[in-house]
Design a protein around this nucleic acid. Sequence first.
DNA 1: AGATTAGCGGAGGCAGGCCTCCGGTTAGCA
DNA 2: TGCTAACCGGAGGCCTGCCTCCGCTAATCT
Lengths: 184, 184
Amino acid sequence: MTDVPVAVRRPQRADARRNFDALLAAARDAFAENGTDASLEDIARRAGVGIGTLYRNFPTRQDLFEAVYVEEIDQLRQVAEKVAALPPWQALSAWMEQFVRYAVTKRAVIEALNRESEMFRSCRATMYAAGEPLFTRAQEAGEVRPDASFDDVLRMISGLTGGAFVDDAQRDRVFGFALSGIRT
Amino acid sequence: MTDVPVAVRRPQRADARRNFDALLAAARDAFAENGTDASLEDIARRAGVGIGTLYRNFPTRQDLFEAVYVEEIDQLRQVAEKVAALPPWQALSAWMEQFVRYAVTKRAVIEALNRESEMFRSCRATMYAAGEPLFTRAQEAGEVRPDASFDDVLRMISGLTGGAFVDDAQRDRVFGFALSGIRT
DNA sequence: AGATTAGCGGAGGCAGGCCTCCGGTTAGCA
DNA sequence: TGCTAACCGGAGGCCTGCCTCCGCTAATCT
């Protein structure tokens, strides 16, 4: 998290730093709304900054994406730690709940499950490292059906996340159904 | 199915008819691959036809979409009839299975759940008319949890369909988990 | 305050998508 | 076989997005 493959350092000068942060915030919003394909020109516009400035700070779309998400993905790890003391199923389900809430607003995370690239691989690795132990523990405790894998669950959740629901209540309900389907 | 709101008649002349059919086939493929947003220019290219010809036969994207899907959606109704004699849960689950198989190759159908327009509304109506009775019957027979609605199920399935899976086996497995989650 | 140089931002070239228009072609009929 | 209306298809205008380049601006240092 502190050290990422392609280093994009925070600029030194005051104006530059301002723009850098504005871009990051704008990108976060844009990615949440439109996924990985959000228009870079639109992001620059939202940030109130020229397109040139965007490209100087983040030479590739990857770089921008990375700057936005690497940190956020780390939250999943933190939640996993917080939750470790709970009983097996409760721990897993709390973590998954967080994952859902997280994925709903960050559509791009879902795409990370599939796309190929250095950084997506690393995001994926972080997710697995965070959640898989919880899953295994719940499974070994006999709380989760033995024919399900952690990957199954992650993809189930991320698929569901991509769907559109009438309202939050429906979404929660449907997630509840689906998750109850992986219990023994 | 024989009569749709905006009539797009099959052309009379031999060459025109050939092109019409080629366009339809190309559109089917393109929509399956890229969803509703498939490039019309690409569809014309696939059909080996000029873009002008596409627009002459299908003045709007809607028209083309309609020509491709209205008929296919009707299959869901047919399956519902075939399956009506089975016991409640089996009937529902057979129909849903068909819906899944169907939706996987026709991504656009999923979008129909959300988009607003005359024709999407009509597609949706057809889907509901086909599947909802089966659902209600299964629910009244106590096979389906009473707090689930047909809409929940449809959206659950269509959400999952949008997700990417490693292989068909995983997809089937995950669908199985999710569907077992709506049983009592 | 003045010099230095990091940083700004938009013009502009390129690509691809949408849709219209119209000169050229040809199927079908007599 | 010859005529003619129906049909073809792509050029071209418009838009939006990607990315590069470079003349100008102003933050920082002395």
